[in-house]
Design a protein around this nucleic acid. Structure first.
Lengths: 229, 229
DNA sequence: ACAAAAGTGTTTTACATACACCCATGG
DNA sequence: CCATGGGTGTATGTAAAACACTTTTGT
């Protein structure tokens, strides 16, 4: 195949985590190169014999040590001058993980990995601010119609965690009673027999998301959909 | 920039048109190459100094003569063996056009362009069936919450055209009164003083979509959203 | 007994749904 | 006057929104 093209293909990941109070973004620090010392999305060049998604997963693991079980393609960025090193298009992905499940690798291939509150991001390299924006938009819109929030929580969680998660991501307050009513009406949450003791106040039952049941319902035409005033 | 990568970047377009009865897809016939005589999505290799969207628009124009004013990125396909000629990733776009506005270029760079009913597609090259599927999904879901249907109609259209368009795309029937009520309630359709005479029956008022008004409303937090039983 | 967070129902309001007849024109 | 497609309103059902007090625990 003779095509005279000199474009490189990179993959980058917008990785969201939730700590109980804050929505966080996983970034790595560039130690070398033109954007030295700026922070950037984990990612890198795709290998010749590697699927896109395999590529992001590999880069993510190499650079930060995390292995998300939720990963979806976001958008492909290809402006001519988005990378000062040359023509690079970036296929971006969004990943959702629970930060508690990982200890970040401090430094692998010349980078340092760290969580940042989405509200206090450091200066980002390249067009990464734009990519993050796309990720946030996707996350905000998708939690309305897909049960992806659970990826950010512990397997078993008090209802209030779910509530706070939605409020944090959407940056608005939600009526607790209506939220709980709607959520439970889907029939995809299971009450466990465990409970969680908050630092003060009444203990809370722990719930878990029943993915099997969700898939069943979805096949029957059910749609997860939650909206707020 | 030393990156030992041998991946080519292509752009492909899923172009939908509507004729009044059918949803159609614009395809070109391959005259050369491994997929000779199969039909394929318009598209080709991206140039080194060209934005993604500019690239699809160029290819589209070269191969078919159309210049869509609605073009959105769909998804990037990058499976290792999607193209037998070598490693090629394809950034796909969806375009919406009104076929009446163009006469297809019969043959430019060794290809023939033609509209096909979405219900009777010929065998497609590469992984193009998958790309078309993605386009259709996007179109079907997006007409619910974005006023993109108008791109497929004449500037001024009888209400019944809009009705039929929705029914054709969604492949189900819709209550005429409820549809009209909801559509008009948004306040983004303007009645013109013209009317259209069908081959038989009562003449219909012509409407037009007021994009300016739509943008205004959208900035105020309005959301176009239309659902059906 | 107080502080802190969990848990719980009812009323009101708005929107979606279902549904059928008359109107204007051309032949 | 008949055939064809255009145009219209109301009643019912269902889900969203608004809203505040009681319960359980630790200190």
């Amino acid at each position: 195949m003779k095509v005279n093209q000199h474009i490189k293909v990179a993959v980058d990941a917008v990785v969201f985590g939730y700590t109980g109070n804050e929505l966080e973004l996983l970034l790595i620090q560039q130690k070398y190169g033109s954007e030295k010392n700026k922070w950037a999305l984990p990612g890198g060049f795709l290998k010749d014999e590697e699927d896109l998604q395999t590529g992001v997963a590999r880069e993510l693991n190499e650079e930060t040590g995390v292995n998300p079980n939720y990963l979806e393609q976001l958008f492909t960025f290809g402006s001519i001058n988005r990378d000062p090193r040359g023509r690079v298009i970036s296929v971006s992905y969004m990943a959702l993980i629970n930060p508690k499940n990982y200890v970040l690798k401090a430094a692998t291939d010349a980078s340092d990995a760290k969580w940042f509150s989405i509200k206090e991001l450091p200066p980002l390299a390249y067009d990464h601010p734009e990519i993050v924006k796309k990720g946030l938009e996707r996350l905000k819109s998708k939690i309305h119609y897909q049960p992806i929030g659970f990826e950010l929580l512990n397997k078993e969680f008090p209802f209030s965690d779910l509530e706070k998660l939605y409020q944090t991501i959407l940056d608005k307050s939600i009526d607790r009673r209506n939220f709980r009513k709607k959520m439970l009406s889907f029939g995809v949450l299971e009450e466990t027999d465990k409970s969680y003791k908050p630092s003060s106040g009444r203990p809370a039952k722990l719930f878990k998301f029943n993915k099997r049941k969700y898939n069943e319902l979805e096949e029957k035409g059910f749609h997860f959909e939650i909206k707020f005033a």
